[in-house]
Amino acid sequence: MNKILAFWSILAKDMKNYYLKPPNISWGIIFPVSWTLMFFIRSNSDVDIRGILPGVMALSVLFGTTSMLAVTITFERRSRSFERLLLAPISLNLLMLAKTTGAIIIGIINAFIPVLFASLIIDLPGINWLLTFAGVVLIAVTSAFLGLFIAVSASEVFEAQTFSNFFRFPMMFLCGLFIPIESLPVFIRPLSYALPLTYGADMLKHSFNASGSISPLVSLLVLTGYSIALFTISTNNIKRKWIY
């Protein structure tokens, strides 16, 4: 009970102090709209909204979640308020789950904003919503834990931002959203299959257009594996670097 209360308090504090601030809310809306507009311009006014939705959703989650978590944790480290959490009588795993859950929730909400906009313009029949939700949750969890990994590696807020981009931009172009993986040079393809977003985006492609090329079960397992690995590495790094 005590642990649940501490978990909930940390989550509620982060939501109120960081995630539900106007800049983050506006980012959640502007980002997918900008992406859709970009595709619209590129396709000379004939945009396949349903076709681009998986990509816009995946990128909305990735961009929102990763940097937000990396920046908030780095900021709290700088102000030393993070020490207060480390000194609380809760386990490090629970603490880091509480810290990441806020970003995961915001990531999931961000993902469905483009769906909401799209539903105002087109009909969305035949979508496997369960698979969509599973895909979005897994991308959000993996991205949040990637943000955590970045936060532990950075000591300044600007470092966290730069480091986030180091991971995000290659993922954006190599995950098969813009360029099909089969069209990439052979020597780059293994790198594409090493990126977690490839599997998340593929799950969404399956659910929206049945156009994915990897079995959803494989994607689920790979993303779960990535999440566990990133979380474990991050908490071990915290023990090594912050509980020095």
């Binding site: 009970m1 209360l5 501490a6 909930w8 308090s9 504090k13 308020s81 009588p89 809760i90």
Partner: peptide, 18 residues
């Protein structure tokens, strides 16, 4: 926490102890 009130800061710290 800079952006939290004095009262909210204390309440938050208490919640960490259940």
């Amino acid at each position: 926490y800079d952006d939290m009130s004095g009262f909210d800061n204390l309440v938050f710290c208490a919640s960490l102890y259940g």
